[in-house]
């Protein structure tokens, strides 16, 4: 039965994807991509991938739409017309068709969903499942795999997020105080939702609650779906909500920019630092067992710290990117 729901949702997903590609109105495309993200989250959840679904939820619902609209305010509303010669069009169609057929052919060889004899369930997965409890002593296997067994991969992901943040800031965050602002731009920039009573009062109440929920997700990654990435996105959503309501300048008063920069770098540094500490204490890089006298306690401590590092970096990067867009949005 779950399969039927899944197939139906996937059909909707294909329709949305086609509509996004076809749409020349970029605003409509942004809204449709919101629906795409919601559908993805439901699909992940039906496949029992709650941690991934939560990431999709946190990023797709809270942050992505806001950032897309920020980008849209910088560009135009319509997609630019680009002329392709008929020959080029046929070539593109041919390449796409060939790739799609290859992928389809490859998928015929794939094991069925939930097939116990699939290769992935023969090799490392049983080992992870069998050793999470004795070695790390936490119930959520996903966090154990992500943080400890494959901690090196996750370190790489954090640095990808870090680099992406630096990239966006260096492209958009260039100060342009020398540029003369016209009245319209100044006015539009200072405009916030401050004079809208209902969103303002409701938002004020929600911001601390969303933040509390983010911290709950952060610190319960070992027991239930969640962890640093999800918590970081939700926490960033809380601050972005505040900035939307009160204006970008007040948002930057709440969390000053020096603090954000510290968070962006500090989180990644904390993750790497834990790894180095393991080396200095005589273990391998990111082998948390040496952090405490009891190996499993060391694993707990290591996971807690690296998840914190992930959360801090993700929060800092997302808020910084939002500010970079908002500061440019009225140009």
């Amino acid at each position: 039965m779950t399969l039927i729901f899944g197939v139906f949702l996937l059909i909707l997903l294909v329709i949305v994807a086609l509509a996004i590609v076809r749409s020349e109105d970029l605003f409509a495309a942004v809204m449709l991509s919101g629906i795409f993200s919601l559908l993805m989250a439901v699909n992940f959840f039906l496949l029992d991938a709650a941690d991934v679904a939560l990431t999709e939820a946190a990023v797709g619902a809270g942050v992505a739409t806001v950032l897309f609209l920020g980008a849209l305010a910088l560009t135009g509303k319509e997609e630019a017309r680009h002329t392709v010669s008929p020959g080029g069009r046929w070539l593109a169609l041919g390449v796409s068709f060939a790739t799609a057929s290859l992928l389809f052919y490859a998928s015929l060889e794939n094991p069925h969903i939930g097939d116990g004899s699939a290769p992935v369930h023969q090799h490392v997965a049983p080992w992870y499942l069998a050793n999470t409890l004795p070695l790390i002593d936490i119930p959520n296997v996903v966090t154990a795999v992500l943080g400890s067994f494959r901690g090196f991969d996750t370190l790489g992901e954090v640095f990808v997020v870090f680099t992406a943040g630096i990239g966006v800031m260096s492209i958009l965050g260039v100060r342009h105080s020398l540029v003369e602002l016209s009245g319209a731009e100044l006015d539009a920039r200072q405009r916030s939702l401050r004079h809208h009573l209902i969103p303002r009062i409701v938002g004020r109440g929600m911001v601390p609650l969303i933040m509390l929920f983010a911290l709950y997700v952060q610190f319960h990654g070992e027991y239930s779906p969640g962890g640093g990435f999800q918590a970081g996105a939700i926490a960033a959503a809380a601050i972005i909500l505040y900035s939307l309501l009160e204006g970008d300048d007040r948002g930057r008063e709440l969390l000053p920019e020096w603090l954000l920069r510290l968070m962006v770098a500090g989180g990644a540094l904390l993750y790497g630092g834990v790894g180095l500490a393991c080396v200095l204490l005589g273990g391998n890089f990111l082998d948390y067992s040496v952090l405490a006298t009891v190996p499993s306690a060391g694993q707990h401590l290591g996971l807690l710290l690296i998840e914190l590092g992930v959360g801090i970096t993700v929060t800092g990067v997302l808020i910084s990117v939002f500010h970079a867009f908002a500061r440019r949005a009225s140009r």
């Binding site: 004020r204 911001v207 601390p208 609650l209 933040m211 509390l212 911290l215 709950y216 952060q218 610190f219 319960h220 505040y242 709440l254 707990h300 807690l304």
Partner: peptide, 21 residues
């Protein structure tokens, strides 16, 4: 450990709320 982190989290949120208000 979780309770301790909870206290820290609640304090952080109170700090945030007071900065907002």
């Amino acid at each position: 450990l979780v309770l301790g982190l909870g206290v820290v989290s609640c304090l952080l949120c109170v700090w945030l709320a007071s900065r907002m208000h």
